[in-house]
Design a binder for these strands. Structure first.
Length: 166
DNA sequence: CTCCGCCTACCAA
DNA sequence: TTGGTAGGCGGAG
């Protein structure tokens, strides 16, 4: 069965993000493209009510985190098709609260795979829902920034907004 | 199987 | 401190 996706924009002060929904929930959150944002009006007619509701939650939560506040409610997240290892990493990431950070090694230990440090990095890089699943709160063991698939600039900005100093 | 990576600890300058 | 590196693991092909 082929998944039907619904892509909806979220306009923020950091640009236009694109949220992608399946019938199960939010599946992806994509950063604004590097260039200018192409704004295309979205016709709410034809969008299933649950998705409209989820999208309101996504938009509110995203704007909150970008402003350095805690996301109150998230829509259901659709992680279908992902590996158990990845899901366990992302679950652990969701427990890191605003202003807190963990190292990749700490996440690895937290999920019971203390030797899978690099693999945790890989799972962070594969996180389909950045910002709301806060992979930006994971730093290298030496306290340095580590990597970020969305660009280190964004990781620094998010952390700064949350009051984390490197 | 091979290759790669948002890592780490360790060792040499 | 900085720079190079081997090791351990999961994911992708």
């Amino acid at each position: 069965m082929k998944t039907r996706w619904v892509d909806l924009p979220v306009y923020t002060r950091a640009g236009q993000f694109i949220a992608r929904y399946s019938e199960k929930g939010l599946a992806e959150l994509n950063f604004p493209p590097v260039g200018r944002a192409s704004s295309r009006a979205v016709n709410p007619i034809g969008i299933p009510a649950p998705i409209r509701r989820w999208h309101r939650a996504t938009a509110t939560a995203l704007k909150a985190v970008l402003a350095g506040r805690a996301a109150k409610t998230l829509p259901p997240l659709d992680w279908s098709g992902k590996t158990e290892f990845q899901k366990s990493v992302w679950r652990a990431l969701r427990k890191i609260r605003r202003g807190q950070t963990r190292s990749y090694g700490e996440i690895a230990r937290a999920i019971g795979s203390p030797g899978a440090v690099r693999a945790v990095g890989g799972a962070c890089g594969a996180n389909p829902i950045p910002v709301l699943v806060p992979c930006h709160r994971v730093l290298a063991a030496n306290g340095k920034i580590g990597g970020f698939s969305g660009g280190l600039k964004r990781k620094r900005e998010l952390l700064a907004r949350e009051g984390v100093s490197l």
